[in-house]
Amino acid sequence: MMGEMHVPARSRARKTTAKTADTVATVVLWALALVCLAVLGSIIGYILVKGLAVVFDPKFILGKPQAINAGGGILPFLLSSIYLTLLTMVIIMPIGVGAAIYMAEFAGESRITRLVRFGADSLATVPSIVFGLFGLALFVVAFGMGPCLMAGALTLALLNLPAVMRTSEEALRAVPASYREASLGLGASRWQTIRKVVLPSAVPGITTGGILTIGRILGESAALVFTMPLFATKAPTSLFSGGAAIAPNLWYTLTEAITPDAQRIAQGEAAALVILILALNLVARFLAHRYQARQGMVG
């Protein structure tokens, strides 16, 4: 107790206040994090509790959809969603990353690049139903594709391109200037530097953007309402054939379907969708980690 007597009262009070503030802040932030986790957990939990039993029925997961009778399956929807995701990513990644390379490495800062960036950011906030209507007008009607896999993929590509471009651009910008200097200082050209140093270093950031995009594609329904069939008994057999993706079909099943077990199918579809998104995320993350390890990017 003797030691404390030398501490001036005011200073001691200030110390106590700071300590209290620290504790309060810690508790509040913890609570907020818990709220987020609880919301997430309860949604996923609800979906899985309702749907897991349905999903694990092989007749459901591997079966053929039924338009009128009960007992339909969802395999064609799952396949359609996977095809749709792959096709959209194949369209989107080269264009998005290419545009990002131009924006980050070549365009410099000018009124035009600011305009492009502003345009991309604005476009990213446009509701997806608007893209759906645009896709209907352009791909389905004007190009005469009809509702099909390609029309859906192109619409989703338009919808997600701005985000892919911007996240890739940020990933490229985050590559330290010292890497570029080292490469150029060794006599590499600008393009060699981008290809061999900048782009590989940005791969983790670009992948993260890609994974988010995969989730958005799988979960998107509004943009597909007019551009792909909402119900089909078969998965697409070509780029321009129909086939219904699982998310828009989920909406269709709950609102339009006349099968007696629509409720059960919807629950199963929701669970299957969640599991599919998680699975694709894990695969993408695994591939990104392996790439980083192979490249020697992590110590």
Binding site: P176, S178, Y179, E181, A182, S183, L184, G185, L186, G187, A188, Q192, K196, V197, P200, S201, Q295, G296, M297, V298
Partner: peptide, 30 residues
């Protein structure tokens, strides 16, 4: 050619996020 003849080492070590081998082999590969 100039940068090949006169190399630069910087203030902060700036190895590429690659393997030791790939760092050294970078220039020859270029």
């Amino acid at each position: 050619e100039l940068r090949k003849r006169v190399g630069m080492v910087f203030q902060r070590p700036n190895p590429f996020p690659k393997s030791i081998y790939d760092n050294v082999a970078y220039g020859p590969r270029i």
